[in-house]
């Protein structure tokens, strides 16, 4: 069992190494012009240099901050609205169709509107992130709240739990699996929109870094930014995954 897992981890690492090697091979043989594709060595060097001089590090942190703030904003709003809508059949009937209409709107399409309303500001970028990341959160929470075991509501009535206790002790923990799945989805959306927002509003961050590097044909810097984005996505997903399995430990404990 354990050896199995080790083997699979080894296989995935091996594949990753092969990919890097292939990338190096392609760039060494100049199959693609180095103006467009730097080797992993050059990208790595550009990244380390950027991090050491501090500029890239600051931009990275700016992007992460934006992603997290936007995501937290979306999560709080999504859980709150989702709880309100999900726990009332009437609210679902009234608001549901409108939500379904707004949900498929690509968040990047909202950017011009956001710029018109908020200007090329930090709050505009945050607003766009929060708007885009809201939907997976909202829909997951609505689903979670509407799928609470009805028997538990009867138990709550028999025990005489107060209204707020029912929400915080029954509905919310019962919806937690859905909510966490929604948070995972919206985290990805938040990262995408943080980058898009930075590109469009030229706020300091990895998005604008990548954009400027591309315009100046500094492909190594561009790739350094992309690598950091990849790392950000990977690490945040891992952290959230750990958080999720800790929160839902009651599920696995058979």
């Amino acid at each position: 069992m354990k050896i199995d897992r080790l083997l699979w981890t080894g296989a995935s690492l091996l594949f990753f190494a092969a990919l890097i090697w292939f990338w190096q091979f392609v760039s060494d043989n100049r199959w693609v012009s180095p103006v467009f594709l730097p080797g992993p060595d050059r990208a790595w060097n550009a990244m380390m240099r950027g991090l050491q001089t501090g500029d890239l590090g600051l931009r990275w942190i700016a992007t992460i901050e934006r992603m997290i703030y936007g995501w937290l904003l979306a999560s709080l709003a999504g859980i709150f609205l989702g709880a309100v809508i999900g726990s009332s059949e009437m609210a679902r009937a009234y608001i549901g169709p409108s939500l379904e209409l707004m949900r498929p709107l690509p968040a990047s399409a909202v950017v011009p509107l956001a710029i018109a309303l908020l200007g090329l500001s930090e709050s505009m970028v945050l607003g766009v992130i929060a708007f885009g990341a809201l939907w997976p959160m909202l829909l997951a929470t609505v689903h979670g709240f509407s799928a609470v075991e009805p028997r538990l509501y009867e138990v709550s009535r028999a025990l005489g739990l107060s209204r707020s206790a029912v929400i915080f002790k029954i509905s919310l923990p019962s919806s937690m699996p859905d909510i966490l799945a929604g948070m995972r989805l919206s985290l990805t959306v938040a990262l995408i929109l943080a980058v898009v927002g930075e590109m469009l509003a030229s706020r300091e961050g990895l998005g604008s870094h990548i954009m400027l590097a591309a315009r100046a044909f500094r492909s190594a810097d561009l790739f350094a930014g992309v690598i950091l984005l990849g790392v950000t996505g990977l690490v945040s997903a891992l952290l959230l995954g750990w958080f999720e399995s800790w929160m839902l430990r009651w599920r696995e404990s058979r």
Binding site: R151, L152, E154, V155, L159, K169, P173, W250, R251
Partner: peptide, 27 residues
Amino acid sequence: AIVFQDYGKALLPWRTAHGNVSLAFEA
């Protein structure tokens, strides 16, 4: 107090045995 037939649905799966009894005291 009510004892329901479907104990699997009437208990809070995310709470320990201790926590499930605690719910009554909290109420």
